[in-house]
Every structure is written in C-alpha cells, then in structure tokens.
Design a protein around this nucleic acid. Structure first.
Lengths: 211, 211
DNA sequence: CACGCATTTTTCGAAAACGAAATAACCGAT
DNA sequence: ATCGGTTATTTCGTTTTCGAAAAATGCGTG
C-alpha cells in the first residue's frame, strides 16, 4: 500500500497536502463548542463540503475564505493560523538603567527588553527634557497606538487633535500615535514616563521613532 | 461600456475583482523601498507574473501565498490586510486610582484606559498581595506576551520554565505569558507593578485573565 | 531612433479550490 | 436489525490561481 499507487481515477486527492494548521484548528474549535459543519458553514458562508475537506487536509483555503472563516468565528486571522506559533518560553529582563540608551534633543530614551526579536510591542522609559512646547518642531508620529504611564513629575501632552492634557505621576493615557504628539515636562523636574507602543509594521523601536 | 459586455475572449479577466487591499499595500511597500517585482519574487517565492496581477487586482491570493508574502517581507499578515485599520485619533485617559478595579485573592488589579475598544493590548496596575509562593495554586496563563515594570517594592516572578527572578523598582521583564507564571511580593510592602499584556484572541483584559 | 537591458504585463495550460448534490456514516427510537 | 433524521465525506463540473514564457513597456546610450 505504497503511496505510489495513485489510481488517478478522479482527482489526485492524496492526503499528502494537510500542511496548513487551519484544518486542525477548526476541528478543535468545533469540538470545543459542539458546532456542526452546517452551523459553521452558515456563519461563515463557506460550504459544508469545503469545510470537511479542509479539516481533512484535502484542500487548502483561499485567502478570502480564510477571512470569511475568521470573521464568521469572530476571531482574528492570526488565531487560526498561529494557534501557538509564538515561541513558548522566551523572556528578557532589563535591570533599571541598563536598557539600550538613545538620546534625542528633547528626550532621553531607555529601550527596555529589546533583545526579544519579533515582538509586536516596544517598551521604553523616557525622560522628557523639554520644558516648553515648540510649535515649529515636527510632531512625533508613528503608526499604531501608544500607551503612556507617568512615573514621576508632571507631563503635558500636546496632540494634533486635542487640547493639551496634563498628567501627574500615576496617570496614564492611551492614544492613536498616528496623531501627531509632543511631550513637555511641567515644573522644574524632568518628567519620567513609561511608554508602550505598537510596533506593527516596524522592525524595532528605533525604526518606529524615526518614521 | 456596461459591465455586461464581457468579451470572454480569454478568461474573464474583468478588473472587477480588486476587492482586497493587499495589492495596493504591496505596491506601496515596493515604491517605498524601491523593490522590483523580481526582488520581491525571489524573497517570497511568488512568481513575478502573479505579483503583477496582484497589484492590478487581476487575481487574488491563495492563503499560502499570502503567508509567503508576509514572511518574505518580514511583516505580520495583518499588516498586509489592515494597512491603516486603526481609528485615527482616539484616546483614553485614566487618572491614577480611577481605573476599573478588579480584586482577586492574591492581587488587586486596576485596569487602565479600558474604554478604548478593539485594542490589541491591555494595561493595568497591579498590587501583589501574596507574599509566599504557593505551588498548589494553578499558574496564571494566557496567550501572547506580557511586559511588566516594577513601580515600587520588590517582586519575585515564578515561572514554569525558569528559576524565580527577583526584580526591584525600575526593573522590567518581557515574557511569553503562555508559560505559567506567578507573582510574589518580597519584603513587607506589597509590590506595585505595571503590566502590559497582549490581548490577541481575547475580547478584553478580564477574558484574558480568566482563561 | 534603433539598440540593449531591466522591468512589468499578459497569455496560456496545469493545478487547486469552490459549491451543489450525491453518497456514506452515524445514532436514537422503534 | 430496520427505519428516519442529522451530520460528515466524496464526487464532479465550474471558476480561480499559479508559474513559465512570451509580449510589451521603459529608459538610458551610442
């Protein structure tokens, strides 16, 4: 019963395909929730037959079908394709003050935990050196969102679309960083803040900052 | 020039397809980086012809091809499909102590900036009430990664795969949170930490914590 | 403007993927 | 066992995607 005897009576229909994990993932999800193929079919707009073939690795999926599936099931696409793609036990530790330093005219950056590659999010501790808003400076701007937590001092955040906001130690803000923004320290102390920014579309933090 | 006059001389080859944004995104990326189709082809393993057709909306992509493209270009798939999906100028502010509180036996959570929906990342300030490691307690575990910054006190992080680590105020760690983990405060003060965790596959922070 | 040379677009069979319908497997209840 | 109904799998013809090669477009140079 070698795999060589491909009686080509119909199509090739070897089980040899089955490389992609979506099929297994779908079966898993169906068992978990006790869905029938017909239910999934009606929710996703993909035919029952195709779904069955998918689960058995007898067909791959069109990209548009993958999207239909993800949407119909209410999951992000990556959830179908990387059920556990992320490496299992990575970690990176940065002792305070030992991150990768990075100086700009108005800010000092300390990039934290930067030695984990392929991460979606960047983290840094920033000291805001500027104490006055200069309207001539170009906005800071990068794709995605930015989260900011004030560690010490008082901060004024200027943005393109809102009035400036004042934040004190312990306050936090989350905003779309494609909206231009600028930081200013209030009082005589430089404000210290912790930033978490999305890195989607960038290779690393400095790429994002330079964009 | 109605759309009815499909002279079926070859294939249908209507330009009517072009629904998916990947083609435009690819062209954009190519212009930015001055890549030729041949370069992209060799990096992704997709033929030049197919790439050309893709950019002109004359074909869609197989899912496996979408992956080849994303990998070859070093981008996550979502970056090809949602070039600028994020809303443009949203923001959420949380004054210190005014976040959404959440009590557990060993920790107090304050979820920050939770009123922005559809975000990939969750943020919270946590007070670690437990002062001893209980090996009988089930691990905390959720998909994705978790970043942790120690605001005050001293923290011991226990994980499934590593020896416990001790962190003091100002230290930070990034780790794969599918690896079981537990926090313990050292000394007599409760440690305060800031956490940023990926929410991919979850609807919100509490879904992720309960998983 | 004719000639290379690089790049893009189109053409054209072969190989997949698709849905509808036919077939098969499963499973309580008679 | 033998029905009925539900669920899963396979078959089959149509539509779509693929790569290789051919044709077309650009573009600097002699």
């Amino acid at each position: 019963m070698g795999k060589g005897d491909r009686t080509k009576n119909t199509k090739v229909t070897d089980d040899a395909r089955a490389a992609n994990p979506i099929g297994k993932r779908l079966r898993q999800l169906r068992k978990e929730h006790d869905w029938t193929l017909a239910e999934v079919a009606s929710r996703t707009g993909i035919s029952v037959g195709t779904l069955s073939k998918l689960e058995h690795g007898k067909t791959d999926l069109n990209f548009s079908s993958v999207n239909k599936l993800a949407n119909g099931l209410g999951l992000p696409v990556t959830d179908l394709t990387n059920p556990a793609s992320s490496l299992q036990g990575r970690r990176a530790i940065t002792i305070g003050g030992q991150g990768v330093m990075f100086e700009a005219s108005d800010m000092s950056y300390e990039v934290l935990c930067s030695d984990v590659a392929n991460h979606r999010q960047g983290y840094m501790k920033v000291v805001v050196k500027s104490h006055a808003f200069d309207p001539d400076l170009p906005w800071h701007q990068h794709k995605g969102q930015e989260f900011l937590y004030v560690l010490s001092g008082r901060l004024e955040l200027h943005t393109e679309l809102y009035q400036p906001v004042q934040l004190k130690a312990g306050d936090s803000i989350l905003f779309d960083s494609s909206m231009g923004h600028h930081y200013v320290s209030l009082g005589r102390k430089d404000a210290e803040i912790l930033i978490s920014m999305s890195l989607e579309g960038y290779r690393n933090v400095s790429d994002a900052l330079e964009s």
